[in-house]
């Protein structure tokens, strides 16, 4: 007999593990970034920078309450910049920290993104999960696109082998051999580009890249809102208003 409670516990544990993973990743990223900041802002930062840095520390603490900036600063070392950089890259490339189980990772991300969003606390994790899931989608689309390209190059080589032999090269027709290769490769690439498979793969690649970029813009917007800065959407709204006003002025001028 299946224990419903046990199933719920398992689901909760699964979700909790995923959440911990995100916190840890955030913490690593934040620590690395802060240390590299500390190292690069010597001697003492100016007031403006200091204020920005304080605000940033608050932001990091909100994500990783257990993190101690003082300890982090004290242990700053020469490779901290690299660590910070790597942490940033790993944030946008989840497969680098769970390369062996991309499917498992995807399911974790999916479960977090789809988890009951009963508290405000969950929203940032859900957003990040969605972004990481979209990163994986983009990587998959990249692979599919690369596969199409690979087929085209393979076809080019096969065709080239038929029309040009080693003997031709040995006879000194190097220029002809090269021109022949370029001509055949061009033909195969153009044929491939016109195929439905390629166009679909390219469309998927552009779609996933676009959605990822959109998600990153949303993250930037959340950050801008948190710091009382004008957001992209607000500026776009103003731009739209100005464009419409200019249009009206133009029409009125013509009527006058």
């Amino acid at each position: 007999m299946t224990d419903k409670k046990d199933g719920i516990n398992q689901a909760f544990e699964f979700w909790q593990n995923g959440q911990d993973a995100f916190f840890n990743a955030q913490k690593d990223l934040a620590e690395g970034f802060a240390k590299s900041m500390a190292q690069n802002f010597t001697p003492k930062p100016t007031n403006m920078v200091a204020q920005g840095f304080d605000a940033w520390q608050d932001f990091v603490k909100a994500w990783a309450p257990g993190w101690d900036p003082a300890t982090a600063m004290a242990t700053a070392s020469t490779d901290m910049f690299n660590k910070g950089r790597d942490a940033v890259f790993s944030l946008f490339d989840p497969s680098t920290w769970m390369t062996q189980t991309p499917e498992q990772l995807k399911s974790v991300l999916q479960s977090i993104a789809n988890a009951p969003q009963f508290a405000d606390l969950v929203f940032p994790q859900a957003d990040m999960a969605t972004m990481w899931q979209e990163t994986l989608d983009f990587q998959n689309a990249t692979s599919e696109f690369a596969e199409q390209m690979h087929v085209a190059w393979l076809n080019s080589y096969t065709e080239y082998s038929k029309s040009f032999s080693l003997e031709d090269l040995q006879s000194g027709k190097v220029k002809e051999a090269l021109d022949s290769w370029l001509k055949i490769a061009n033909k195969e690439l153009l044929d491939m580009q016109s195929s439905q498979e390629f166009m679909d793969a390219q469309k998927k690649l552009m779609g996933t890249a676009t959605r990822l970029r959109k998600r990153q813009s949303e993250a930037a917007q959340t950050w801008a809102e948190a710091y009382q800065m004008p957001t992209r959407v607000e500026i776009d709204d103003l731009t739209k208003t100005v464009s419409e006003l200019k249009r009206e002025v133009r029409e009125l001028k013509r009527k006058l």
Binding site: Q170, S171, G172
Partner: peptide, 10 residues
């Protein structure tokens, strides 16, 4: 040798 020479010359 001939092929090598041709390739080298090219």
């Amino acid at each position: 040798g001939e092929a090598y020479r041709a390739a080298w010359e090219h």
